[in-house]
Write a protein that binds this DNA or RNA. Sequence first.
DNA 1: TCAAGGAATACTGTATTCAATTCATGCCTA
DNA 2: TAGGCATGAATTGAATACAGTATTCCTTGA
Lengths: 231, 231
Amino acid sequence: MPIEALQRPQSLRQQVYERLRTALRAGEYRPNQRLTEIGIAEALGVSRTPVREALGLLSREGLLSSMPHGGFRVPDLRADDLNDIFELRYLLEPYAAGLAARNADHEGVTGMHVVIQTEKQCLTDSDNIAFVQASQDFRSRLFAMAGNRRLAAAISQIEGHAQFVRSENFDDWKTRTVLISAQEQILEAVRLRDAENAAKAMRGLLTTTKNTLLAALDQYRAGDAADDALY
Amino acid sequence: MPIEALQRPQSLRQQVYERLRTALRAGEYRPNQRLTEIGIAEALGVSRTPVREALGLLSREGLLSSMPHGGFRVPDLRADDLNDIFELRYLLEPYAAGLAARNADHEGVTGMHVVIQTEKQCLTDSDNIAFVQASQDFRSRLFAMAGNRRLAAAISQIEGHAQFVRSENFDDWKTRTVLISAQEQILEAVRLRDAENAAKAMRGLLTTTKNTLLAALDQYRAGDAADDALY
DNA sequence: TCAAGGAATACTGTATTCAATTCATGCCTA
DNA sequence: TAGGCATGAATTGAATACAGTATTCCTTGA
């Protein structure tokens, strides 16, 4: 019987953190919207303390902006920021994909294959949430296979900055099909231990992701302007 | 007249964070040493709250390890970790140096030149603390010149992980002379807007830094073993 | 003498309370 | 009427109190 690492009950701070992070990544809050500690605490049914700490962590990661005594705000990302973010992702993620190809093992590859099958199933089922989760899973497995925890952590952190637009913007069938085929290319290169092509395929995936996000950003800002007119 | 960001009084949390971060980077705490909230709070003369939040931030950044109900510990870095860290630094910092060369402007270059002169003065004065600060200043200016804030943030974060050994290990004159000459090479390449050579010089600087740290790590562990015998 | 169990202590996680600061609204004055 | 000032509400920052958990040490039995 294998001994698994026993998991202790996760703290409220961690739960609040996860909840807010996914909410931010899903674009549930508007840019420049102010997040008050007490508001979130009451919404989640906890006291201010864990909320406070979770907000501090998110702020440190760059998913929120803060000022002393000024509270926390949702940062207003612009196209410039997106360029900065993707410049970094272009640097990190293809490199990590190449490492993963070098260190590829059979179990890892089959696991990622299963994840892609799950994604396809989600696509036919139109289960958007599960699709996003599976897509995250694919990335986690890939970067874990690279074997450099710090690199994986850096990628995880910077990628969070880019996932700010509403998930509705990714709900179209075409984009997801392209995403899956790009992941299949990556996986095939990893299976063959072809680092060069794995990196190349990752670059392709990043390009499509960036373009999708840029288009979503335009759409988002257009909606923003319309909303502003109402106020 | 340029509008400067008005500065608000910095919070206790921030002060505790800075203090602990520099202490950790200076190697004031031993690997695996447990840091208790109340101990730090009493030492700094504040309550547990800001200490707690600062520890949480440091833990999230990877400078401390934590478990639920298990408190915070100083992570026990080994040579493997150093390899992971420097693999990432090799990826990020030469790239950033190349960007800085592309975007180089006159004021920035002269500013960095002044910093190097300061370093030399500190070397003759044997002012170690000022030297380390000036060295940090050089890096800040260089990476700021690269023009990508997220990249600079990523570098700042990962570099903190590597600065764990006692500053005494860097106090020898030879290492610092090599450091200065490497910085001068970088600056010269930046001045000529030669991205290729700037990146190359940065790689050289990283190699010497890594070797110094590896040697310090050996020395450190040897000292550890000796101490363990005493307990 | 050593191991196992239990009790006591210490520490973390969370809630609550108090103080300090900021922002906004409204009034007063020029 | 416009601008400046003051007052008050709201929110953040920090401290303290309390409950639950883990660790440590001591005792007891084999």
